[in-house]
């Protein structure tokens, strides 16, 4: 096994002549779990398909350890990359039984029947599907199909496992269960994994590293904790967490982590130049005496609390949580406990 690295990877589709992927460089350390996170159309699936070999990069290179998988000169066919993939649609072959689906990569590699049977059984037991070995994919539920697809990845000890929005077609309850399965799978196999998703909670919960993508570029690559605490730039700030990004006067000395006092000063001098983007997370906004006045635009009861949308005097929006009900249209005092200059 070796480290997977992308070097200024680009993809331009002839039909649109727009760069779907634009100079993406990143490295997934051996045994790492990288999440490619971004809105639909940001190029994350194209990156994944280039790693798999289904799309040819128009620029840059993909390497696995010292081996070049693709660059301007060569392109190793997917069938020779020793990778495995869980597709959004699971891509189980409907005419084969569960065991045949899982065992197919071994059959292609000409593994002897006995050995094959043993490895299929162990892969199926890893995803707790042994009793279903003889069934057809059509007889399984969504979650079970997903686990068959995972078992098919397990069976060959691939260098890299790719996952293309594998949870998109599952309901919320099943998602949590499958997230657990993926984590377990990652720990057990030790494979390098690349996971494409548009769901930040999924990315945060599963990955050891998160790459936030937008319009074909990687905006930030860091651990989930780092990305959450120290997002770089307005787009990442808006993508991660439910925070609001507001324009405030630039803080003195370009400080990034802003305290309650600094926030209070900035909010009171709103309108002064030069301005900076400041990320304010709803849990840091409190409706309490002594703050700036803000008008309630909407209040949504979420069970444990109200999610409140507030309008600052100059019309910028803030989000806040409130234990107590607030009336729409009422003006409330707002304290901001912390902020992050993007």
């Amino acid at each position: 096994m070796a480290q997977l690295s992308l070097d200024r990877l680009s993809k331009r589709f002839a039909a649109t002549d727009r760069a779907a992927v634009d100079g993406v460089s990143l490295t997934v350390r051996e045994g790492g779990f990288l999440a490619l996170l971004g809105p639909s159309g940001c190029g994350k699936t194209t990156v994944l398909r280039m790693i798999a070999g289904f799309e040819q990069p128009t620029g840059g290179a993909i390497r696995l350890g010292s081996r070049v998988l693709a660059d301007g000169e060569v392109s190793v066919a997917p069938e020779h990359r020793n990778m495995a993939m869980v597709f959004q649609s699971y891509a189980l072959w409907p005419h084969m039984s569960v065991a045949d689906n899982v065992g197919y990569p071994l059959k292609v590699r000409r593994i002897a029947t006995e050995e094959r049977r043993r490895r299929v059984a162990s892969a199926l037991s890893a995803v707790r599907l042994e009793p279903y070995a003889g069934r057809r994919p059509a007889d399984l539920s969504g979650g079970q199909r997903q686990r068959v697809a995972l078992a098919r990845c397990l069976v060959t000890d691939p260098d890299v496992v790719l996952l293309d929005e594998p949870l998109a077609n599952l309901d919320r309850h099943l998602r949590q269960e499958m997230e657990e399965t993926f984590r377990e799978f990652h720990q057990r196999s030790g494979a390098t994994m690349v996971y494409v998703t548009h769901d930040q909670a999924e990315a945060m919960a599963l990955a050891t590293d998160v790459a936030v993508m937008s319009e074909g570029k990687v905006l930030q690559l860091a651990t989930p904790q780092e990305i959450y605490a120290r997002p770089e730039g307005r787009q990442v700030g808006m993508l991660i967490g439910q925070g609001a990004v507001i324009k405030l006067p630039s803080p003195a000395g370009d400080t990034r982590a802003l305290t309650e006092d600094m926030m209070g000063t900035l909010l009171r001098t709103m309108g002064a130049e030069p301005v900076a983007d400041v990320l304010v997370r709803p849990q840091d906004v409190e409706i309490a005496d002594g703050g700036v006045a803000a008008r309630v635009i909407s209040a949504l009861f979420e069970g444990e609390r109200y999610a409140v949308k507030l309008s600052l005097p100059d019309g910028q929006m803030l989000r806040a949580f409130s234990r107590l009900p607030v009336r729409i249209g009422e003006t409330v005092p707002v304290l901001v406990r912390a902020g992050w200059r993007l």
Binding site: F54, P78, E79, F87, Y104, V108
Partner: peptide, 18 residues
């Protein structure tokens, strides 16, 4: 036939005739 069915077979290591 969803294109992913063939792609999955390619990743499984199967060449064109296979």
């Amino acid at each position: 036939v969803d294109s992913s069915l063939e792609e999955a077979a390619r990743l499984a290591g199967a060449g064109f005739f296979r």
